[in-house]
Design a protein around this nucleic acid. Structure first.
Length: 579
DNA sequence: GCCGTTTTCGGCCCGACTGTTTTCAGTCG
């Protein structure tokens, strides 16, 4: 029973080998598109195969549906196996080296018999790569560099690791007298959960002074390339940052272009063609008259195409262009919409600050309330709360509330649903709390049935208001538990249990796609920091960004309610309360 | 191989850079 990810991987590999085999390029692009569609689907592709409704999914036609059905039935794909007879599977690996594409991969295999990374490296060193027609010493050097880079950081970097560095650089550049506009572009501007490198777009009175200063920053380890208007550097942490200084008149076009995503830009250009226009980084051209409109502001690009301005977080070609054309883009949630945080810890369990300190930090941010949600007893190593200690904590919360003016601390807990499917506090204790979040912190490797049973127990409990980090994934580090997201979302909507977007940049859980599906299904969300110290409240920006990428509107998110609104809601039993 | 507000055929995004060549293919964003 293959997962969407497994099916997508098989299709991606097939597309790579088709490209290598030089089949009609539109054929492998079609397979690539289908692979992406499968990877990003919120529903089970396998069950759609069982229903025979695969072809209702965009980018999946008769032919690819048949391939998916074969993968579901047999776990493999005959066509791919045939390709593996023709080309060694490891050839796909060496294609991932920067500077090596399908053509080069095929040539080194055919002409030099190379199929593995080690062989490629050896050939680059001993001069046999440089000896190939059309290749030279530089090509070999670039391949070696590419291999080293691949080894150094196979994975993309986490947004939360990259963004602070990028912003530090932006601040420095902005303060330079030569700088006019300085903006982050690329996937970091779209707030994607992982990013490969950082693109900065700027305008300046003296471009060379700006790129020069950029290349001299203390965090630069290596200047990869430098010219009068462009400079690429690598930081000591291995992050590549490109600065492009562009003409004022084209700032809008170039910012739009380099913000991407690639898929968004492709779709935008297709739309332009249908309207008799042509979009590139050098302007929007009216094809008939040949007139080129240059845009110094990004929103002009969208305006010229008859579109509403599309927020960077939405630019993934997931329907945003269609929505912008009809004026039906969502009113995206913004930082100011959040009125409180419903999942954070204190020094009663593994937090590093007192309840009062956390409350004051939240108040300083302009919040109206927090819910102190410490771990419960089965989390022994973090001094999880027993029913007795919980009672004591309630007394302290009452004292803090007495002292604070215009701010409310709600009593809460992050209650474990244990491996045996039992909640870690009895209902009598849960009844004492204002807001209960339930999370899974053990038995990560249980099968889908067991995990889903734990989720059912949690959500059907009348006191449980939210599920914390619902999939348990740690980006690049730990896979999600065996959750059936479609079922969880349906259950959340039915029982009136909110699903959390945990804001820690390692989690971002729910992710953007799941959040969007949850909103569409009528489920409620909460966006929480899971802070363990006051400074962690800053993590909320990543949760809000994830929500925005998921098209989330304020009304979907419980903690956009005012303190009074929240109190009101909590005074009532939750919807769909189990009898 | 997919798709349809110029539909069931004939399209399918655009341009720059690199390294190598002397007019261009491959790769990248």
């Amino acid at each position: 029973m293959p997962t969407n990810a497994e099916i997508a991987t098989i299709l991606e590999t097939l597309a790579e080998l088709m490209e290598l085999d030089e089949v009609n390029k539109f054929k492998f692009i079609a397979v690539q598109n289908a692979a992406r569609r499968v990877a990003e689907s919120n529903f089970s592709i396998e069950s759609r195969a069982a229903d025979g409704t695969l072809t209702e999914i965009p980018d999946i036609g008769k032919s690819i549906a048949a391939k998916i059905e074969e993968i579901v039935a047999t776990g493999k794909l005959g066509e791919l196996e045939e390709y593996f007879q023709k080309y060694p599977p490891s050839l796909v690996e060496i294609e991932r080296v920067q500077g090596v594409g399908p053509r080069t991969a095929r040539r080194v295999w055919e002409e030099l018999g190379i199929s593995t990374m080690a062989e490629l490296e050896a050939a680059a060193r001993d001069g046999s790569i440089a000896g190939l027609a059309g290749m030279g010493k530089k090509s070999a050097e670039n391949i070696l560099k590419g291999i080293r880079r691949l080894e150094a950081r196979g994975n993309r970097l986490l947004l939360g690791e990259v963004l602070p560095v990028a912003e530090e650089i932006l601040d420095i550049l902005k303060q330079m007298p030569e700088a006019r506009n300085v903006t982050c572009a690329g996937s970091a501007r779209r707030m994607k959960e992982t990013v490969k490198d950082v693109d900065i777009i700027a305008t300046a009175t003296d471009p060379e002074a700006l790129t020069g200063a950029f290349s001299q920053l203390p965090l630069v380890e290596e200047v990869i390339g430098s010219g009068p208007t462009k400079c690429s550097i690598r930081t000591h942490t291995g992050l590549q940052i490109d600065l492009r200084v562009v003409p004022d008149a084209l700032y809008g076009n170039l910012l739009q272009h380099f913000t991407g995503s690639k898929e968004h830009n492709v779709a935008l250009r297709e739309l332009a063609i249908s309207k008799g226009m042509k979009v590139s980084e050098y302007g929007v051209e009216d094809t008939a008259s040949g007139m080129v409109h240059e845009c110094d502001m990004e929103d002009n690009v969208y305006q010229l195409l008859g579109l509403e301005y599309i927020a960077p977080e939405l630019r993934e070609n997931n329907g945003e262009i269609e929505a912008a054309a009809t004026g039906s883009l969502p009113r995206l949630i913004e930082p100011g919409d959040l009125k409180g945080d419903l999942h954070l810890h204190s020094d009663w369990s593994d937090g590093h600050a007192s309840i009062m300190e956390m409350a004051l930090a939240a108040k300083k941010r302009g919040f109206k309330y927090i819910a102190v949600s410490d771990h419960t007893q089965s989390m022994g190593m973090v001094r999880g709360l027993t029913p007795e200690r919980l009672e004591k904590q309630l007394e302290e919360i009452a004292r803090v509330n007495d002292e604070l003016d215009g701010f409310r601390v709600f009593a809460s807990a992050e209650v474990d649903v244990r491996s045996d499917g039992v909640l870690d506090l009895p209902d009598e204790s849960l009844a004492r709390l204002d807001f209960v979040t339930v999370s899974i912190h053990s038995g990560f490797n249980q099968d889908k049935q067991q995990i889903m049973e734990r989720m059912r127990v949690a959500m059907e409990n009348p006191y449980v208001r939210a599920i914390g980090h619902p999939t348990g994934r740690l980006i690049n580090r730990r896979d999600p538990y065996e959750v059936d997201m479609e079922a969880i979302i349906a259950m959340a909507a039915r029982t009136g249990t909110a699903l959390e977007i945990n804001s820690h940049f390692q989690r971002l859980d729910l992710n953007d796609r799941h959040a969007r599906a949850a909103q569409a299904a009528g489920a409620k969300l909460v966006i929480n920091s899971d802070a363990h110290r006051p400074g962690h409240l800053d993590l909320l920006r990543y949760g809000i960004a994830t929500a925005r990428r998921g098209w989330i509107e304020p009304g979907t998110v419980l903690n956009t309610l005012s303190a009074a609104g929240m109190k009101n809601m909590l005074a009532k039993p939750k919807k769909g309360r189990a009898k």
